[in-house]
Design a binder for these strands. Structure first.
Lengths: 206, 206
DNA sequence: TTTCGCAACAGAATAATATTCTGTTTATGG
DNA sequence: CCATAAACAGAATATTATTCTGTTGCGAAA
């Protein structure tokens, strides 16, 4: 399963076996019951461990939450960064970004669902500063990359704040709808349309 | 303040005074502390009332949450519906949708922030069915409206599932960034660019 | 190989929080 | 004015998060 692969990659080894178990089952609980409704006892029972073990590894409920959150975000960002290396033009980059985003969500729907749900909790919790730092770094990197690429003859939207929203916004919105069950057909079906549309969206009028 | 106006409009009269008070302060707590971190005791103290009163009016914490959520969603939808009446062409409608959305968020930032944060909690809680029903109704209405309008000579994206995401997705993404403090300049500054871009986004290639 | 030290775990005890319950007040229709 | 129910207060209870104390087992240093 895709979930296990993410955890195995970031927490390898036999030593971290229980830690992985806890994270895996906590993720499932958060997604099935909601973050506030999942109790420590529920994840304890679910992986047949003890509260002591959970608190030893994560400190508190928020610790589990933010660990999962940063793992997911790291994985998503790493994949984007890797494929974005190959882009030669801005148009390449836009297509790659959209496809990478849609692929990641459809490859890891449980992680993606969690990422959407947990963001606001992490943003308010004790790791908000860490989240903020990562965000500014990620967006700075992305902006630098986008502005370093060849734009060809095209007239592109100037604002660096607008650009990411125009490129990813529609895909994100559609993925949310899919993950919540509001729409049935997978966003991957719309991958190319989303990419083409994003490219049109960032052109300047006239 | 814009917040008070929304509550005054939907819960008028002297009888509902405390109910309004509780909602108003609960909204502030949820936004400042986060949903999970706000305790009943905190909102009790903040509006100088009793737990008895709170539970009398709302049943439980989730009751406060969903009441606030549906109030906000209703207000946003009502505004959209009202202005969307005036649209004569699809292009009109796209511009109106984007502007109405951005205006509502920038007019009611606290309500908008809450709407983003609370959605997943409501979607898992006891009112999930009510939320789902509203969503399908809203999206059905919107789809009907969009497909009833004159498209002029333009070739438009066919998928009715894709259309709303393409139109609102970028604005939503940008508004989230603004509400979370990641970007400083108000989305209203980008209102027209967002509208024009959305219109380009939904054209079909070639 | 033995032993020391510390991380990994278990589960009882405690603290914080949500919810219920019982009683009192207040408004309102008859 | 009275009856009635909603509106409210606060103590009591239940649920859940967190801490604390102790045990186990592994891995490194001797």
């Amino acid at each position: 399963m895709a979930e296990d692969k993410i955890l195995d990659r970031l927490l390898p080894g036999r030593r971290a076996a229980l830690k992985r178990e806890i994270l895996e089952h906590a993720l499932a609980c958060f997604n099935e019951l909601g973050i506030e409704a999942t109790t420590i006892d529920a994840v304890k029972t679910r992986c047949g461990t003890s509260v002591g073990a959970i608190y030893h590894h994560f400190g508190n409920k928020e610790g589990i939450l933010s660990t999962l959150f940063f793992i997911a975000q790291d994985d998503q960002r790493a994949q984007l960064k890797a494929v974005l290396q190959k882009a030669n033009t801005l148009q390449d980059a836009v297509y790659i970004m959209v496809r990478s985003y849609v692929d990641w969500v459809t490859d890891h729907p449980d992680w993606a669902r969690f990422l959407f749900q947990a963001r606001s909790a992490v943003a308010k919790g004790p790791h908000r500063q860490q989240l903020e730092e990562r965000n500014v770094e990620n967006y700075r990197d992305l902006k630098d990359r986008l502005f370093s690429l060849d734009r060809g003859p095209h007239e592109i939207i100037q604002s660096s704040e607008l650009l990411p929203s125009l490129i990813i916004g529609p895909s994100e919105n559609l993925c949310r709808a899919w993950l919540s069950g509001r729409i049935q057909v997978s966003p991957s079906e719309y991958r190319d349309q989303l990419a083409e549309s994003a490219w049109r969206a960032i052109q300047r009028s006239q």
